[in-house]
Design a protein around this nucleic acid. Structure first.
Lengths: 272, 272
DNA sequence: AAGTGGTCTAGACCACCCT
DNA sequence: GGGTGGTCTAGACCACTTT
């Protein structure tokens, strides 16, 4: 039995026991946070209920004020409670608008794995038209690099990427590198490109004939359209482009609220 | 002279950054966090750079260790830095996999506004088939409620929702309420339903003929498919269903890294 | 051994809410 | 006025990394 599980046990008689194990690997504030979360999960504390005040928790668990606060803050960040100054801390009802979808799944396709290949379809240096110039904050007619790439999972096309880059004469283009580097720059942001910030939008579109053909799906299929603008350290747009992800290969997931069996989370306190 | 006033003495000849204003509304840790973020945004601190150590910050800004840590933690949560015990704190390169999409936009459609209407298409109590039973963790043949609803923005259909609910004989069905209540339950989670947790997936699909017709779009249009399972306080599935959101009406956005002009955020310390 | 992040305590003051 | 969350300090110990 781990410390965490012990801490989560409802104590008969008294509603809670002194449960913090100072020898455990998990810090005290996490043990308390997880103990409280366990009470939320198992229904001892239900949505709308008021948590014990911080002073009560402090006394009960023999912790300092600050440590109790950290525990409460942890639950706050997990979206499980809300706090109201002068009133108390309350269990939050799961709210669909708290759902958060991350793009980790995408990264797995990008960070050059064994399966993934990048297929460079086109590289061109061209003068920016009105639209591109506006997005990249350059003058119409200035040079820009236009890329078209296909991301492949083995032999299956996954995503079709088009991108405009501000042309930097000091960094000559190496076609071979473009297949990989610039892409990794977006997803790893390391070194060279030194991207400073970015903005993304994601929406759902129907593929045009040519797009569908590239992605080996039926024309009219649904796809995620992920548009991105990345900015350099001077806060100037450096890249504007968009991915079309095959809808049948990408799926994002999220969870809300507190499920029953809380995973160890801080992990690795099974020893002893 | 109180401790506070003494501590508020300005730093003479500070080479770097604004000092902490103890009279400001914004707490010290936030001021420090924002000051550091400003340095990241304006390029004084670039991706990969090491931040001043906490000891240095502590001395420089005349703050306690704990307060400095809170500031660093704030940046950590904002995804702007990474910390490495024994080595230091480093400015993080923006990483697309940090991008996070929230469903706030959806909520605006749901929380009964003036524009939004719910159009109940069908309510039925039916015995659960194999598939429904498995999702709701009931026995095949047990009763379930099947709902079909259309979410309207004025006269425009936005989303088509189908849902199976576990049938609870103790709570008779009131058709009028179903148009609204059960839906709000999902999005506000307040009171009655007392939903405990949920899981969501979002993907991109192509609408079938009947679906497209309901949503007033061309057959084959792209749409977001948002599937949900909600669980009650006993951790039993209470609801399984899915929304089809018109792709042309929904768009999610996210940002990465630190943009230039950081908003005041805690705001209102310009007075005095 | 020195530097650095991570945790914790005991005590304090403040702003806010409720009665 | 008493309870509650929010902030802050000074000092301490630990674990990890680097020299």
């Amino acid at each position: 039995m781990t410390d965490l599980e012990r801490a989560a046990l409802p104590i008969a008689g008294a509603n809670r026991g002194p449960t913090i194990n100072r020898d455990a690997y998990a810090p005290a504030y996490l043990q308390l946070a997880d103990a409280l979360q366990a009470q939320i999960s198992d229904g001892s504390l239900r949505p709308g209920d008021k948590l014990p005040s911080e002073a009560q928790l402090r006394r009960h668990y023999q912790l300092s004020q600050v440590t109790v606060r950290r525990a409460v803050n942890t639950l706050l960040q997990r979206g499980l409670v809300t706090t109201a100054q002068g009133r108390g801390t309350f269990v939050k009802s799961p709210d669909i608008s708290d759902a958060v979808f991350q793009l980790r799944e995408l990264k797995e396709y990008i960070v050059q794995g064994e399966r993934t290949r990048v297929n460079l379809l086109e590289v061109r240096v061209l003068p920016a038209d009105e639209r591109v110039a506006r997005k990249l904050c350059i003058e119409p007619g200035e040079w820009a690099i236009y890329l078209r790439r296909l991301l492949m999972d083995r032999d299956t096309p996954i995503s079709y990427h088009r991108e405009y880059l501000v042309y930097d004469p000091s960094q000559p283009i190496v076609e071979g590198e473009l297949e990989v580097t610039a892409l990794e720059g977006l997803f790893r942001g390391n070194g060279k490109a030194a991207l400073q910030s970015g903005a993304l939008t994601i929406e759902c579109v129907t593929l045009r004939e040519d797009e569908a053909q590239l992605l080996h799906v039926a024309p009219g299929s649904g796809a995620f359209l992920l548009e991105h603008v990345f900015r350099d350290s001077m806060d100037r747009p450096a890249s504007w482009g968009w991915f079309l992800w095959r809808g049948d290969r990408i799926k994002f997931s999220a969870t809300l609220g507190a499920r029953r069996r809380v995973r160890p989370q801080a992990g690795g306190d099974e020893h002893e």
